[in-house]
Computed example of a mutant assay.
Amino acid sequence: MHYKQLGKSDLRISEIAFGCMSLGADHAVNARLLHQALDGGINFFDTADLYDKGANEETVGKAFAGMRDKVIIATKVGNQWRPDGSGWDWNPSKNYILQAVEESLRRLQTDYIDLYQLHGGTIDDPIDETIDAFELLRQQGKIRQYGISSIRPNVIREYVKRSNIASVMLQYSLLDRRPEETVLDLLQSQGIGVLARGSLAQGLLAGKAAKPYLGYTSEEVQQAAKAVQSVAGAARPAAEVAVRYTLHHPAVSAAVLGIRTKEQLGEGLQTGKGASLTTTEIKALQHILQANRYEQHR
């Protein structure tokens, strides 16, 4: 497994990160899978208080109880469940963040969170108030670093200008090259790490039947998938090439893969051991389709 510094923070993370959202309800099964990931070299585990109404954090906390110093745990805040459980509302207020972190700490069975992320964000949010909450939590030692999870360039720019974020989690793949236009270079220049999700584009780059995706037609998606398979050849799985494309940009610290099964974990660990794509391979993949661009929130 290869490791990278998360931007200019003090967090050194595996470039394959374990996205915990897909984990099921069986804590024992989850613990075995999470321990196998750790044994395989994955040290970065990403969850959120939103997932399964907090049960996802609980299963991560149970799995790593007594071994907290061996793992880097990231979670998210900002989506507040309604009392009746019918859904959630966006709440990036300082008061809510300070309240929610206590529940996340309890569920995770820890007294600190390595990376606390705002789980969304709009340009109309009380951004300075949100930043104040994260800065206070860092001063209190309840979090080590903070970041945002957002695909909105206008929001990302505001946090770059106004905060000390360590990271931005965003969607990035060969079929979603929107971050390449300006966002990735901006974050790299500021020493802010990128956590890339969606590397496989809902599995479309790893064998799933083609369908329209982010403005691309089914035929174009199929062309991209064929190009990935061509680069992969007989020696590598297509999924490895798709994830390696995501990791090629120097701004990207890790690819966050949703993992639920031993097979998915095995593929992720294999990718973590794999070689980087060559410049020729990257150019061949980029040549297949014109890069898409953000049309909103610019």
Score class of each variant (00 low, 15 high):
217 T>Q: 05
206 A>W: 00
196 A>D: 10
164 N>I: 06
232 A>L: 11
274 G>S: 15
246 T>W: 05
252 V>C: 13
194 V>N: 12
256 V>Y: 06
236 R>H: 13
252 V>L: 13
275 A>V: 00
227 A>W: 03
168 V>L: 10
266 G>Q: 15
198 G>R: 10
199 S>D: 04
159 Y>L: 09
168 V>W: 05
233 G>W: 03
271 T>I: 13
175 L>F: 10
150 S>E: 02
247 L>I: 01
158 E>I: 11
217 T>H: 09
267 E>T: 06
256 V>F: 06
177 R>G: 12
194 V>C: 12
228 V>T: 02
212 P>M: 12
236 R>S: 10
194 V>T: 05
161 K>S: 13
219 E>V: 14
246 T>D: 08
215 G>P: 07
238 A>P: 09
157 R>K: 14
159 Y>F: 15
172 Y>P: 05
235 A>I: 00
150 S>P: 01
267 E>M: 08
172 Y>R: 09
243 V>F: 01
214 L>C: 03
200 L>Y: 05
200 L>T: 03
235 A>C: 00
274 G>C: 07
184 L>T: 11
206 A>Q: 04
175 L>S: 09
166 A>C: 08
196 A>C: 12
261 T>F: 10
237 P>F: 03
170 L>V: 03
238 A>Y: 06
152 R>T: 00
240 E>K: 02
154 N>F: 00
221 V>F: 05
201 A>G: 06
155 V>W: 04
164 N>C: 04
192 I>E: 10
209 A>L: 11
168 V>G: 00
250 P>Q: 10
213 Y>S: 12
244 R>H: 05
256 V>E: 01
204 L>S: 04
158 E>Y: 04
235 A>Q: 15
183 V>R: 06
216 Y>C: 11
198 G>P: 08
192 I>V: 13
